[in-house]
């Protein structure tokens, strides 16, 4: 038995038991939600040379809640995600994980702090079997010294069991993951993050390339992860999907915050209106009207 083996075994239980406790444990902040956010961004900005990719963005991610980040193409959604997942560093503002101000230098560091990111199209290695993908980067090993080898039997069994727990009943964990549907691939990536004890799950447009039914499947797992006590960041440009599972909504527009709402404060129609460009859309419709008869 070695360390990584044990850690991997305990992880699923740990995050299921621990996270709900975090809420009522301490409430130093006057915030109505009580409890410290798992991840908090305050006035975060990012510049690429003379390009302002993100300016003054603030958001909070709480355990057992879904924070949705909505925005059009080029609004800064992917920049935001890259800062949270440790691919890029912010240039201004503060980024704290469980109250500690942080600056992540690489994705591994984010993972070690409990932030797992599932990217839309680069979540998995298509030609590799499902079980190899599931454990990629955190493979359990047995044996000593140069004879340390993958615990293949355990990897296969765990993959099958964990996916079943998330409601994915795979026929064969040996099939290349590229043969699964887009929704299933997303779900495997989410199941993996949950299994490895993520506290915060960042999902980059998980439903963007999916049909209605597949999107529903993915959103169900997003809800399942939330109910398991994880904090979820859901990046999307579909307000309907966001409203189904979201608790907080951050609207981005051209790199700046265009709005920040709790679910209780905003209805789907208003969210859709703001998301669709709000006043800009009205202007456009006027323009089109005028053009019509002329």
């Amino acid at each position: 038995m070695n360390g990584s083996e044990q850690a991997a075994e305990q992880n699923p239980q740990r995050d299921l038991q621990q996270d709900p406790r975090q809420g009522p444990q301490q409430d130093p902040q006057p915030a109505p939600e009580a409890g410290e956010p798992l991840v908090a961004l305050d006035g975060v900005s990012k510049y690429y040379g003379n390009i302002r990719a993100l300016e003054g963005v603030s958001l909070e991610v709480h355990a057992g809640e879904v924070t949705c980040v909505l925005g059009d193409n080029g609004a800064g959604k992917s920049t935001l995600i890259k800062i949270i997942s440790g691919l890029h560093q912010h240039d201004a503002g503060t980024f704290s994980i469980e109250g500690d101000e942080t600056r992540l230098s690489k994705p591994r560091e984010a993972l070690d702090r409990g932030i797992a990111t599932v990217y839309q199209d680069l979540a998995v290695v298509p030609l590799m079997p499902v079980w190899r993908n599931f454990f990629l980067g955190s493979e359990p090993v047995k044996g000593v010294g140069p004879f340390k080898r993958l615990d293949v039997e355990r990897m296969r069994e765990t993959t099958r069991a964990e996916l079943l727990r998330m409601g994915i009943d795979l026929r064969d964990v040996d099939q290349p993951i590229g043969t699964l549907s887009g929704g299933e691939r997303q779900c495997v990536a989410i199941a993996r993050a949950v299994y490895f004890g993520a506290k915060v799950l960042v999902l980059d447009e998980p439903t963007a390339a999916l049909g209605v039914k597949q999107s529903g499947v993915v959103l169900k797992y997003v809800a399942a992860a939330r109910d398991a006590g994880l904090g979820v960041v859901l990046i999307t440009h579909n307000p309907h999907h966001a409203y189904l599972v979201g608790d907080r909504f951050i609207l981005l527009k051209r790199g700046t915050m265009a709005g920040s709402h709790l679910k209780a404060e905003i209805g789907l129609d208003e969210l859709t209106r703001q998301m669709a460009g709000g006043s800009e859309l009205e202007e456009l419709s006027h323009e089109l009207e005028r053009l019509g008869p002329a």
């Binding site: 691919l87 994705p107 591994r108 290695v125 298509p126 030609l127 590799m128 990629l136 980067g137 955190s138």
Partner: peptide
Amino acid sequence: FAVGGNKDAARAVGV
């Protein structure tokens, strides 16, 4: 296999 199959995905999961 992972770095050849999808380098960015591999990097993202900490390979």
